[in-house]
Simulated assay, not measured.
Amino acid sequence: MSEYQFYALTTVILFFKMIAISVVQGVGRVNTKTFVTAEDARFFAQAPPALEEAPIVKRAAMAWRNDLENIPMFLFLGLIYVTVGCWPEGAYIYFTIFVIARILHTIAYLNGMQPWRTIFFTVGMFVCVTLSIQILGAVL
């Protein structure tokens, strides 16, 4: 598998990871019958809208926002990394570490597991910094 193909695989895995967070939110709302949107409350719970989301839905939303702050940055860096021809084996190593770190970060976030959430976040950021440094080395 080429680095580009591995990058594509990484992208798809991260996509499905984010879809899983959406599923957690939906299941959380259905299981608690807690819907803040009026039409959802009427349709799914036949009840008035809730004043706030259920705790699991709040946690999943925070994990989703964190992904939106980190995954696009990684995807841009990863694409540049393979395009400019940085260390080929590094793509397999760094991309794998990032994906595992983001999956574990989500699990830790959903379950309120500190310091693990911060550790997995830091590992993912370390990968992005490493990619950045290697990209700079390749283009300068």
Rank of each mutant, 00 (worst) to 15 (best):
I133P: 02
L110G: 06
L136V: 13
L77C: 02
T122E: 05
G124V: 07
R59D: 10
L110C: 12
V123K: 07
R117I: 07
T83E: 10
N66D: 09
C86D: 08
N70Q: 12
C128T: 09
G85P: 13
R117P: 10
W116R: 07
N70F: 08
A63F: 04
Y92V: 12
V99Q: 00
F74E: 00
F76P: 08
N111C: 08
R102D: 04
A63K: 10
N111W: 09
Q114E: 15
T106S: 14
L131N: 02
I135S: 13
V127K: 01
L110M: 06
R65M: 10
P72L: 07
L131V: 07
T106K: 00
N111S: 08
I119C: 07
V123H: 05
A63P: 05
P115I: 07
L140E: 05
L136M: 14
I100G: 04
P72N: 05
C86S: 12
V127N: 03
T83I: 13
L136T: 11
T106I: 15
Q114N: 15
L79V: 06
I107A: 09
V123S: 01
I71V: 15
A138C: 11
G85K: 13
D67E: 14
K58G: 05
V82H: 07
N66C: 06
N66T: 12
F98Q: 01
I107L: 11
L140T: 09
L131M: 12
T130W: 04
V99N: 00
G137S: 15
I71C: 06
L104R: 04
I97A: 09
M113N: 11
A101F: 01
T130L: 08
K58S: 11
V129G: 10
I93R: 08
D67W: 04
A91R: 02
Y94P: 00
I133H: 06
A60K: 01
F76W: 11
W87G: 04
I93L: 14
G112V: 12
W87A: 14
A108V: 13
I71T: 02
F76D: 06
L136E: 09
T96Q: 03
T130S: 05
N66Y: 00
V99E: 04
M125G: 07
F74N: 00
A61K: 07
M113C: 07
I100E: 03
Y92W: 15
I103L: 09
T122H: 03
D67L: 03
V99R: 00
K58D: 08
I71D: 00
D67F: 11
F120L: 03
F74H: 01
V84A: 09
N111L: 11
I71R: 04
F126R: 04
R59Q: 12
L75A: 13
T118K: 00
G124W: 02
I97R: 03
E89F: 05
I133D: 04
F121L: 12
F120Q: 02
T118R: 01
Y81E: 00
K58H: 08
M73L: 14
V123Y: 00
